[in-house]
Design a protein around this nucleic acid. Structure first.
Lengths: 217, 217
DNA sequence: TAGATTGTTAATCGATTAACAATC
DNA sequence: TAGATTGTTAATCGATTAACAATC
């Protein structure tokens, strides 16, 4: 088994992927860690160290082939596996996520959308009809999605997650404003927009304090 | 001037704030770093170190007063300043953010929503009427918002941001799938849902590899 | 006072950066 | 071959954890 890759490296992978995708679609064929570091505002050392957690993708004296590196990171991230996802909760957040995040372009498949509000049953979100939550078990059993996007109130979050785990879901993206905690073998990614807003508020406040040092002493 | 607080500490602040808000509304009056650490799954040492970047909020032998600590973090984050924000882009993402993130409950004020699509002018999002982007300059000059939420295509992101900076905006929350880079005196928080999805994909893949070590050697 | 728990210093650990030999 | 640039080891830096004296 591979040695454990640190959280910091993992967090940077999507950013590398983003830049490489950009370069690739800009017809750039090769890039050195030095040039990439210049564009991404990180050190070349860090790029080489990060990539070498997963193997040697470059060539001395040449650098990295953009396409090959991009595809390698794709594999590392599992974007080539065609994961199937369901969306639970067809409110604003759910709808936005379904429409906005180009699932397909990253190799994911959104295969079903569920809600427990009968008024929403049958309405369309993109190309998907909203299905009753009551049918989720049968749906999962039949189509075997691996991931669920939870865009539901935090009051029901854990209950829903536990059910879905028992039906076979192995990964959750959670949008509600409480952390989802699950057994070790389940992957979770919490997205807290409120936290981002507070961080922005902190940064703004800090900058104002620097411009105006004695305002709030 | 305060010594620079590390990024890691700042990133944890909103989480502390969340837990303290929870405790406070649950009528908990005091808490020790040890008990809080147990609940948050971090070390007590880290909690004490983090808080002490900003001052001593506790009392030996007693611990921390929940209400007082919560309000102290509120001030550190700048949530008590009544920052005014505008939303630029009334598409799905913008709408969701406006409705979902309880601005007001965190002390922010959403004071205007703008879009450049005439079909949207005058439509309501929550209690706000969508205004034409062409009027944004006059609006900013008059109402002096500090923050802008950008929920617009990445193709126009930098152009819009630069305009808004010249009108006086000092902080941006950016939802488009490219990093917003700005001068040093401007606060930026990038939210990339696509990155979160990729991280989830990585974690899922890693767990599958551990269960099935030789599947993809 | 005795017990509890902070604030803070010191020790450890891990992540980042620098340097360079290997090699394309 | 000479020049460039990787992969990797070593050095540095910063963040986390441990420990404990201060003190409520």
């Amino acid at each position: 088994m591979r040695k454990k890759v640190s959280e910091s490296v993992i967090n940077r992978l999507p950013r590398y992927y983003r830049y490489l995708t950009e370069l690739d679609s800009g017809k750039v064929e090769r890039i050195s860690s030095r040039e990439l570091s210049r564009r991404m505002h990180v050190t070349a050392s860090q790029i080489r160290q990060d990539l070498n957690c997963f193997g040697g993708f470059g060539q001395q004296g040449y650098g990295y082939n953009v396409r090959f590196l991009k595809e390698s990171i794709e594999k590392i991230l599992g974007l080539d596996r065609g994961y199937r996802a369901i969306l639970v909760g067809a409110g604003n957040m759910g709808k936005t996520f379904a429409i906005n995040t180009k699932f397909e372009s990253r190799g994911f498949k959104l295969i079903g959308i569920f809600d427990s509000d009968p008024k929403k049953f049958g309405t369309m979100i993109g190309t998907h009809k909203v299905l009753p939550y009551s049918r989720i078990r049968e749906f999962i059993t039949e189509h075997k999605p691996q991931m669920a996007i939870l865009a539901i109130p935090k009051t029901v979050m854990h209950e829903v997650a536990n059910q879905l785990i028992s039906y076979g879901i192995r990964a959750f993206m959670n949008f509600s404003y409480t952390e989802l905690s699950t057994p070790d073998n389940i992957a979770v990614e919490n997205v807290h927009l409120g936290d981002s807003l507070m961080r922005l508020s902190y940064k703004l406040t800090e900058k104002q304090n620097n411009e105006n040092p004695h305002k709030n002493d």
